[in-house]
């Protein structure tokens, strides 16, 4: 099944979604036998795993192991790169690769934060309410309220409250990344995907992002790709180790880093490769 075009990305009423999610199931994400191909490259080879609701799950592994590709299948960002996807991916109770799925609505429920901060060249305020405006919300009071709440949630409000209408590009890298998190939170997603969110930041900014991830835990199911194993230890409840497109091992973070079941996991976390 190719997912090149967004022709099916027409909005449908979200009833179908809310019916599925009324009682939060134990697993927000459940993947079975997932294969992803880019042309002739077999990027993911039969991944099966479950991600617990309200927890932070870290995906670790050397570069090119498929962890980012996996993350991008969870909100169908792979559609952009002409990836061919096989297997079943259930997010919030819905098989997101079924043809009836509304990709736009999926992405409203599954937010994403990228490796390098990518604010729009617009004001701080307009960045935060970007998603709301696309939802057709025009009421200035609602927009202002959501902007304030989202910025507070992303621990950025105190730093920007007096200059909401300045360009987002005047912010520091760390502030920009928290703005991108605030922007994602404004849509009230259930799941937050983070693709190495701190890799472009200095240690102080990284610490702030990590603190933020821990604060958000519980309210959101967070999946974070990271190169930094200490970071995985610090922020995550569970960790999955990827290697060459395969899931080698997934366990509670403590178990994976202290008593890895697989030899390759042990080699990787002890720094023998990667």
């Amino acid at each position: 099944m190719t997912n090149r075009s967004f022709a099916h990305a027409v909005r449908t009423p979200p009833d179908r979604w809310s019916m599925q999610v009324t009682q939060a199931p134990a697993h927000a994400i459940s993947v079975q036998g997932l294969h992803v191909y880019y042309g002739t490259v077999h990027a993911l080879k039969g991944i099966s795993l479950k991600i617990k609701t309200g927890q932070v799950t870290a995906l670790i592994g050397p570069s090119g192991c498929g962890k980012s590709t996996f993350l991008r299948t969870l909100n169908r960002m792979n559609d952009l790169t002409e990836a061919v996807v096989a297997g079943s991916v259930f997010v919030l109770g819905e098989n997101i690769y079924s043809p009836q799925v509304d990709v736009v609505e999926l992405r409203r429920r599954v937010g994403m934060v990228f490796q390098t901060p990518n604010p729009f060249p617009k004001s701080i305020f307009e960045n935060v309410v970007f998603g709301l405006r696309r939802q057709g919300i025009k009421d200035r009071r609602v927009l202002a309220e959501v902007a304030e709440n989202s910025l507070k949630r992303a621990a950025l409000w105190d730093e920007v409250k007096d200059r909401l209408h300045d360009s987002a590009l005047t912010l520091s890298g760390g502030q920009q990344q928290r703005l991108c998190i605030a922007r994602a939170l404004a849509l009230e997603p259930k799941v937050l995907l983070m693709d190495e969110p701190a890799s472009a930041l200095d240690p102080v900014a990284t610490a702030k992002i990590e603190q933020l991830i821990m604060d958000l835990k519980g309210d959101y199911t967070i999946v974070i790709v990271t190169h930094n194993m200490q970071q995985a230890v610090r922020v995550s409840d569970e960790t999955a180790f990827f290697l060459n497109g395969e899931l080698i091992e997934m366990a509670s973070t403590r178990t994976l880093f202290t008593q890895p079941a697989d030899r390759r996991t042990e080699d990787y976390i002890s720094g023998r490769f990667g």
Partner: peptide
């Protein structure tokens, strides 16, 4: 840059909204 397109799509915009509100203004 592509990250602008991704940012827009990740915030639940349709392809047209992405072009109209992220690509053209950039």
């Amino acid at each position: 840059p592509n990250h602008q397109r991704e940012a827009s799509l990740a915030l639940a915009s349709t392809r047209w909204e992405m072009i109209r509100h992220a690509v053209l203004p950039y």
